[in-house]
Design a protein around this nucleic acid. Structure first.
Lengths: 211, 211
DNA sequence: CCAAAAGTGTTGGTCTTACACCCATGC
DNA sequence: GCATGGGTGTAAGACCAACACTTTTGG
């Protein structure tokens, strides 16, 4: 009984996920999603939270169960049923934890994943599908963003994950009409015209037709 | 490691699910969703298919994984992680299989479920939510219907599961426009004006915006 | 002839999409 | 002054919801 975590974050204008390089066994040197066995007195959710903490030093981020993989042959050594989880973390808060459990731990853009161990290519596909879908009918995008952001940044997140351009005027109209955002009396100043900052009124997952 | 099945069917103008009455242990006499341990060399999906076969004498129906429940205390005797599945079966094809594993096995309308063992009330809630959602954006309704049906019957299925009335003209327009149905050169004759029969062109789950 | 379900179109409102120009700033 | 992203409105078409009468049959 194990959990595996697909941990997504946004950085360098791309969606990335955390992978670990396996040290030993038949999949040595392969990359995989981080995971580990579930403790005897531990719930699945607890195990996922713990794993997230051990890898990224984070608690209290968006975390949901994805799917359970249970083909007997998925791990050639012994039977391991694995419950996969999807996590969304804001890049700024992540502190990758040093560990000798793995040869390496690092972020990969989801468009350039290496070959994955076990059945983790299936996991990767499922996680992306789920993320796509949930982005459109829930507000979970907040968990990838810093507390304050511009509408341009918000739109950029959608464009990166959905891989399609959105019309700026329509996007702003739609999002503002939902009334999920508080306009802040501040501006983000940068190289160009300053942009108003916004914050989510509620940082709690809700189902809302976003697009 | 166990699987539990929420098996839905339609009969007597209501949505019903199959429950079993537990014989022994702390939940003796309680009703629960049928389920059982996963065999050593068996995949989760295979275990679910087997369980469906053992209870309802059915293969090849719609079956999907729902969610995995893994709180250590969910079964007070020993830790059992349970993977729940959702199945949709056409009532006419079901042959409830005799068994002495349970005190009783029978259909309950989903609106009148008894108190359930373990965490099966959660399972019941989740299964209903999933069914509601999937009915609207996939064509899985075909798995609850006989091969030939009238538009009135199809509409009735939606009304029963979604628990809201639909406008007949709009419903027909929408469904026919999707082009998923073949009109058959036959009529269903009954007490009143005969209705044309239809069949799904493809009996394979697909994502389609049905409503 | 009556009850019951089948069948059928139109309209108004809402929602979605497409589209172009000026603005504020840093360099 | 120019390059860059910020900010804004409108019009056409698609889609959706509401609505009532006639037909066909069995009993």
């Amino acid at each position: 009984m194990a959990v595996d975590l697909v941990i997504y974050t946004l950085t360098k204008k791309s969606l990335q996920c955390l992978l670990v390089q396996i040290k030993e066994g038949p999949f040595a040197d392969f990359w995989a999603f981080p995971g580990g066995l579930v403790g005897a007195g531990e719930s699945l959710d607890d195990a996922a939270v713990r794993e997230l903490q051990e890898r990224a030093g984070l608690k209290k981020v968006y975390l949901e169960q994805l799917y359970t993989f249970g083909k007997p042959e998925r791990d050639p050594r012994l039977r391991v049923v694995s419950v996969s989880y999807l996590a969304l973390v804001p890049y700024r808060k992540v502190k990758l934890q040093p560990t000798d459990k793995y040869a390496e731990v690092r972020w990969f853009p989801v468009t350039r994943l290496p070959q994955l161990a076990y059945d983790h290519d299936q996991v990767a596909r499922l996680a992306m599908e789920r993320l796509h879908a949930k982005l459109q009918y829930t507000n979970i995008v907040f968990s990838l963003l810093p507390p304050e952001f511009t509408l341009g940044e918000l739109q950029e997140v959608y464009e990166i994950i959905l891989r399609r351009p959105l019309d700026r005027r329509n996007f702003r109209k739609k999002i503002l009409a939902l009334g999920l955002l508080d306009p802040l009396p501040k501006l983000r100043r940068g190289a160009h015209r300053p942009a108003s900052l916004y914050a989510f009124k509620r940082n709690r997952p809700m189902v809302v037709e976003m697009l």
